[in-house]
Design a binder for these strands. Structure first.
Lengths: 340, 340
DNA sequence: CTGAAAGCGCTAACAT
DNA sequence: ATGTTAGCGCTTTCAG
């Protein structure tokens, strides 16, 4: 059946398909992209040839010719914790809807993060940058190239679109709730200088009550370690910058023979799946929506740019997505009708 | 200072840099890639010009010329649950170490998954495919292209490299443990026909004990729904295909006023963070390592291919990564010294 | 409807 | 050490 495959080591090109189908590469291109300028018969022949050769167009060639990557990127500090994963998933799903592939880059706090992000910038039509992955200088430099950009969970930079989640106000609500429980002494676990999100949460708390500030990274182990110290003379309540830290505190409390919330109240932020099972009072964020919105905004910018390359870009957009206090048991005892 | 930026809407090209630096594009290319064939002085001038123009090389041009994407892809069903996120993170970290960007594709069970994967195949130097995202036909077609491929958590396909995690044997250990608790009636929640992983787990369980098979998707809600039915006349123990299902059973049991493990024992698989706080007996998998191994193998294949394009490829590799039973409280009561 | 040919931005011989 | 030039694989005028 002449199904003889090529040398296994080299993908077929449009030229081979053209030759096999007995047409020009232009016709192959047209036929494969369902242009209307090809006979049904020709199209069939081309498709057959392509199938026989197992041909998939090389995106590099296509993109270079089209002048677009058909790909977007997203940069985040790490993928640990469901938090970033959810954002990325929302982003990917939305981008896929626009026909864009997505490139991910986890900086892991690497020193060469800036270079990696710049390099990524050269591969995409638009880029979402989360948190403190790179400095403002890098953001500005990339923005200056005209590449559509959107910042996530990060302080705005000049003319760049930014999407955040509500921190301060919900933190105030959390503080009020804790005060309502009768708690009077507090500690805040987290580093307000590290992430804007954390800064906002601390600001909201500090606006309502006096809390001892205990610097702490955002992972479970850091929370655990910080708590070990703190729990020797525990405050009434420990407000944690995120759920992972709070879960670490939980473990430390358990290890120290302390009960939550009787001996010490604990709260987190993010509403991870684990928070539900640790009965952790926390704050839920629309993470999926955060990512999806980013992808949508980028798509708009990209379209706007290709539609009217000359026109002045519309003003930078800002959005703060709502967050919600999720009351469970870790903040203190509630009447029985309160939700899980 | 002549720092006049270009029209904001168009990234600079190597030609503009060349002109500005008063050299040829070849020299720019050399200078920027730190070739040794440029004077220190020229290099400086080029770098200055590039900086002024805020130039970042377009990867399309570069890749097309170099004949490689410097990017790898990974395909998974979804990113929900820390499971896939961890695998992806391990993959990304390792790939970054090899200088490759990574493209992600979540199929979400979409009908056009095959087309999306094929398209992705045209963008990368190597591709990792997880689980039942696409059929064997697609895998074979892509493999026939010569594109390095590695299958994760999926049954092997002809000459394609495959990495899995140990399911059957550890499931047998789990079964033995449950029998040791004195449990005598069992249910298995999951669909062995859906994922090879689940099939392996079920096979291991079924090898040791008789369990009622209750088909169930792999998410929390499905587990919850399936359990609601099942818990009307609960078996001694419910073995779940993964942690999310088990957590769903937990919630259903709680809602039904049943205690775990006293009224019904429950086990999961994956050892999610939440499992720890739900005191769930489960099985831990080296997910990060799964992803990292995939990236390493791909890098080898890619190197092998470019080093010796003619040579016959080495035989397909197979690897099964070890998994570990994690005993907590949900499977039954243990003497106090048993770990959390 | 189809083909020839000019790029897209960059690298890598090959000259000089 | 630097410049010229030919592609890389594809899309897209521009001519038939």
């Amino acid at each position: 059946m002449a199904m003889k495959a090529l040398s296994k080591t080299k993908a077929a090109t449009i030229y081979q398909v053209a030759q096999r189908a007995g047409v020009s590469i232009a016709t192959v291109s047209r036929a494969l992209r369902d242009s209307e300028l090809v006979t049904e018969e020709t199209r069939a022949r081309v498709h057959a040839a392509a199938a026989e050769l197992n041909f998939t167009p090389n995106r590099l060639g296509r993109s270079l010719a089209e002048g677009r990557h058909a790909a977007n990127g997203i940069v985040f500090p790490d993928l640990v914790g469901p938090y970033y994963a959810e954002v990325v998933l929302g982003y990917e799903a939305a981008a896929a809807g626009f026909g864009s592939s997505v490139l991910i880059l986890a900086t892991h706090g690497r020193a060469d993060a800036a270079a990696a992000v710049q390099e990524l910038a050269g591969r995409v039509d638009g880029l979402a940058i989360m948190g403190q992955t790179v400095g403002d200088d890098v953001v500005e430099r990339i923005a200056a190239t005209g590449l559509p950009l959107v910042l996530l969970a990060r302080d705005p930079v000049k003319d760049v679109d930014t999407i955040r989640t509500r921190n301060e106000r919900t933190a105030q609500a959390l503080a009020a709730h804790l005060l309502g429980h009768g708690h009077r002494t507090f500690a805040f676990l987290g580093d307000p200088g590290g992430a804007p999100d954390v800064a906002g949460r601390y600001a909201g708390i500090a606006a309502r009550l006096r809390a001892q500030l205990v610097p702490c990274d955002l992972d479970l182990e850091s929370g655990q370690a910080a708590a070990r110290e703190l729990l020797r003379d525990p405050p009434d309540a420990i407000v944690c910058a995120n759920d992972e830290v709070a879960l670490g505190v939980h473990l430390a409390a358990e290890a120290a023979g302390l009960r939550v919330p009787d001996d010490v109240a604990v709260t987190g932020w993010d509403d991870l799946l684990a928070a539900r099972f640790a009965h952790l009072t926390t704050v839920s964020q629309p993470m999926r929506e955060l990512g999806a919105t980013a992808a949508r905004w980028l798509d708009h910018r990209i379209t706007e740019r290709t539609t009217d390359p000359a026109g002045r870009a519309t003003a930078a957009r800002r959005r703060v997505l709502p967050t919600e206090l999720v009351v469970r048991r870790s903040c203190g005892h509630h009447p029985p009708e309160v939700r899980t």
